[in-house]
Simulated scan of single mutants.
Amino acid sequence: MTDTPRLHSAGTTAPLDAARGLRPLIEREAAQAEALGRLTDPVVNALHEAGLFGIWVPAPLGGAELSPRELIAVFEELSYADPSTGWVVMATTLENGTAGAYLGDDAVEHIFKGPRTPLIAGQGTRPGTAVRRDGGFLLSGQWGFASGMLHAQYAHSLAAVEGTGETRICVTPIEDVTMLGNWDVLGLRATGSIDYAIHEAYVPESYTHVFSLDEPLRGGAIYRLGLLDQALICHSGWALGVGRRLLDELARHAGARAGRPGQLAGSDAFHAGFARAEAGFRAARALVHQTWDEAERALDAGRALDVRQETMVRLALNHATSTVADVAGFVHASGGTAAVRDGLIQRLVRDVHTGAAHITSGPQALQECGRELAGLAPGERWELFALREA
Rank of each mutant, 00 (worst) to 15 (best):
D3A: 12
T4V: 14
R6S: 09
H8I: 09
S9H: 15
A19D: 01
R20H: 07
R28V: 01
E29W: 05
E29P: 09
A33P: 06
E34C: 02
E34K: 04
P42R: 01
A46C: 06
A46W: 06
E49P: 03
A50H: 08
L52Q: 00
I55H: 01
W56E: 05
P58D: 12
P60A: 13
L61C: 11
L61T: 11
S67L: 06
E70V: 07
F75R: 03
V88H: 12
V89T: 11
T93E: 09
T93A: 14
L94Q: 13
D106A: 15
D106L: 02
D106P: 00
A107G: 00
V108W: 05
V108R: 10
V108K: 03
G114P: 13
Q123V: 10
Q123M: 11
R126I: 10
P127Q: 06
T129Q: 13
T129W: 06
D134K: 09
L138Y: 09
L139Q: 03
G141S: 09
G141E: 08
W143T: 04
F145Y: 14
S147W: 00
G148W: 05
H151E: 07
H151D: 08
Q153K: 12
S157R: 11
G163F: 02
G163S: 02
E166V: 08
C170H: 08
I174Y: 03
E175H: 09
D176G: 02
D176L: 04
M179Q: 12
L180H: 02
G181N: 03
W183A: 12
L186H: 12
L188T: 02
R189K: 15
D195W: 04
A197S: 15
A197P: 06
I198M: 10
A201R: 03
P204T: 03
Y207Q: 08
Y207A: 14
F211C: 00
G219K: 01
G219M: 01
R224F: 12
D229Y: 14
Q230L: 14
Q230M: 15
I233C: 03
I233W: 02
G237M: 10
G237I: 10
V242Y: 01
R244A: 14
R245M: 08
L246T: 08
L247H: 11
L250Y: 04
L250H: 06
A251H: 11
R252K: 15
A254C: 06
A258H: 11
R260L: 12
P261E: 12
S267F: 10
A269E: 14
G273K: 13
A275T: 13
A279H: 07
G280H: 06
A283M: 06
A284K: 04
A284T: 04
A284I: 03
Q290C: 09
D293Y: 07
R297G: 14
G302D: 05
G302S: 04
D306V: 07
R308T: 11
Q309Y: 08
L315A: 11
L317R: 12
N318F: 15
H319T: 14
A320V: 01
D326N: 13
V327K: 02
A328I: 07
F330V: 06
G335Q: 03
G336Y: 13
T337F: 13
Q346E: 12
L348G: 04
V349A: 00
T354P: 04
A357Q: 13
I359P: 04
S361T: 11
G362T: 07
E368W: 00
C369S: 09
E372L: 14
L384R: 13
A386Q: 14
